[in-house]
């Protein structure tokens, strides 16, 4: 990838957490990841290998111990509305309605008028097919619907980069399939944000369904990049197809 094609880049990023005893647990070391313009990047790896940590670093939520995050050619310092993150655990606020939850992402925006903000919220509600649920509270929704609200909240800021942390891990297989279709639809629709997506998962099938390229993490601590595999299957992808099987198999053998 040439520089102009890169939206976000991790350069020699090392991060770890301090343990009780005062030592540091290195989770990732000298990691280099590039996210291209218009790319849907998948990252797979076993639980605890540092996937959420990587996404937090990309979002500017945590500053890595060393290395840099380059976003649109500049060093990223802290969070920006240009990058959205959808957390692994659902983070809707139970005391706010669906509408208010989505609106929360726009609360601090000064460049939009109140009317524009409300309009945007309505647009997003429609996109995730929850138009009728604006005044419902999260506890009244099913798990899949909540996840769609969280997706709407992540998209309402018109981000260039959307970071998805295991978006399907709390859903049953059927619901997650419909959410996959939803994300696929959003991805196909070029009038919609985002420019690029990074999705993290421990489930290989989900990633193969959506990603243009998959990075396989693993190999103990600190985690290393075991492989980078382009997925060139036509979309919408079919889980039952032979190539799909083959790719999933190949990635599986890389991890285990």
């Amino acid at each position: 990838m040439s520089n102009s094609e890169i939206l976000l880049e991790l350069r020699n990023v090392t991060h770890g957490y301090s343990l009780r005893a005062g030592s540091t647990l290195k989770v990732i070391e000298n990691l280099n990841i590039q996210v291209g313009y218009g790319e849907f990047l998948g990252i797979v790896g076993p639980s605890g290998c540092g996937k959420s940590t990587i996404l937090r670093i990309m979002a500017g939520l945590i500053k890595p111990l060393s290395g840099a995050v380059i976003f649109r050619g500049e060093v990223l310092n802290g969070t920006t509305p240009r990058i959205s993150l959808m957390h692994q655990i659902p983070t809707l606020l139970p005391w706010l309605t669906v509408r208010e939850n989505i609106y929360l992402a726009l609360t601090s925006r000064r460049d939009l008028s109140e009317r524009e903000k409300q309009l945007k919220v309505s647009e997003l509600l429609e996109l995730v097919e929850l138009s009728g649920y604006g005044s419902a509270y999260p506890y009244e929704l099913s798990g899949g619907m909540r996840q769609r609200v969280a997706l709407a909240r992540a998209l309402v800021t018109d981000p260039d980069l959307l970071l998805l942390d295991e978006p399907f891990s709390n859903l049953d297989p059927l619901t997650s399939l419909s959410l996959i279709r939803e994300i696929e639809g959003m991805w196909f629709d070029t009038t919609l944000p985002p420019i690029s997506v990074v999705m993290v998962s421990h489930n290989i099938e989900e990633v193969v369904m959506l990603a243009d390229r998959v990075i396989v993490l693993g190999g103990g601590r600190p985690a290393k990049i075991l492989a980078e595999v382009p997925i060139e299957l036509p979309r919408p992808r079919n889980k039952k197809s032979e190539e799909f099987y083959r790719l999933v198999d190949e990635l599986f053998s890389l991890i285990s």
Binding site: L61, G78, H87, T91, L104, A105, T107, S108, T157
Partner: peptide, 12 residues
């Protein structure tokens, strides 16, 4: 995660 939410959306 909720604290991070506040930072992501730059809540006052």
């Amino acid at each position: 995660e909720y604290r991070e939410l506040a930072r992501l959306y730059k809540l006052s």
